[in-house]
């Protein structure tokens, strides 16, 4: 039965325009940014590495597909919660508001199974979106700007050789997806509570905003609680490009995100299974 339910949810998701908004945005936005990076490479290098040129002689250009991907992912990951929650915000609340649950839930299928199928779609969508974002960016950047060493700042200037980069992008994808799934789970939970899709997005984005503020404001109390908040790990994917990779911090982030996800999902199921469908 769960396969049929997941298939149903896939059909519903695939026929909605909003499912494709994020992909279309990324599809057009990323090449534009890459073109801009390519055309302004010299200016960009002066901005990023300007002072280093006083100490080092750099042959050729440091701007390549890897650097462009690194920059784009670093800049846009902070905005990804907006895109990642588009489906989650509506997947349950949309059925409340449109009245379709009156027909869908008056069938001999357990509500938990129905919610599980919806959760599967939310998580799958988030993974596919993040995969598309990271690897589409990498593909287009590499095609437009070529490949080479990646120079990043970590404890000084760190040069990562050509062959040492792809797995780091894959790790960055896993870390950022893990955080984004937690954010999607929060939005999914809120979607079971509200009858419109706007409120879950607003609350989710506000939570991310407040959590990010806690990460950045240097107060002792915030520094104590920040490791326990999933929002503190939104930019952790940058650690994939550190040497050595801080595996203990990444493992800690996984545990924190998993714990928050379990809380959000448990509350979703508890609320949905007892929810009275009155409209």
């Amino acid at each position: 039965m769960i396969r049929s339910l997941i298939f149903n949810e896939s059909i519903k998701a695939l026929h909605k325009k909003r499912t494709y908004i994020s992909f279309v945005l990324i599809f057009f936005l990323v090449p534009l940014i890459i073109l801009a990076i390519g055309s302004g490479a010299e200016y960009l290098e002066n901005k990023i590495y300007g002072q280093l040129k006083d100490s080092f002689i750099v042959f050729g250009s440091l701007t390549n597909g890897y650097l462009a991907s690194y920059l784009i992912i670093a800049i846009l990951t902070g905005q990804m919660p907006f895109l990642a929650t588009i489906v989650a915000s509506e997947i349950v609340s949309g059925e409340y508001s449109k009245g379709t649950f009156r027909m869908y839930l008056s069938r001999p299928v357990s509500r938990n199974m129905i919610l599980l199928s919806k959760l599967t779609i939310v998580i799958s969508y988030t993974i596919i979106l993040m995969f598309f974002f990271v690897f589409y960016t990498l593909l287009i950047s590499s095609l437009f700007l070529g490949v080479g060493d990646l120079a990043v700042f970590h404890l000084g200037l760190l040069f990562l050789s050509d062959g040492d980069i792809i797995w780091r992008f894959f790790l960055a994808f896993i870390i950022s997806t893990m955080v984004m799934i937690t954010i999607s789970n929060l939005c999914f939970m809120l979607s079971t509570f509200f009858k419109n899709s706007v409120t879950p997005i607003i609350i989710t984005i506000s939570t991310v905003f407040i959590g990010s503020a806690i990460s950045f404001i240097p107060l002792q109390i915030f520094e104590i609680i920040n490791p326990y908040l999933f929002t503190g790990y939104i930019d952790l994917f940058l650690a994939s490009f550190h040497e050595p990779v801080p595996w203990n911090i990444i493992l800690n982030a996984f545990l924190v995100c998993a714990l928050w996800s379990i809380i959000f999902i448990s509350l979703s199921f508890q609320h949905f299974s007892n929810k009275e469908i009155l409209t």
């Binding site: 049929s4 149903n8 009156r102 027909m103 869908y104 299928v109």
Partner: peptide, 22 residues
């Protein structure tokens, strides 16, 4: 129950296919 509410973006047949799988 109350007004008949369907997945408006789907065809009549696809709507019924969704319910038939349940």
């Amino acid at each position: 129950i109350e007004d008949p509410c369907f997945y408006e973006y789907l065809s009549a047949k696809k709507n019924l296919q969704i319910f038939s799988r349940l």
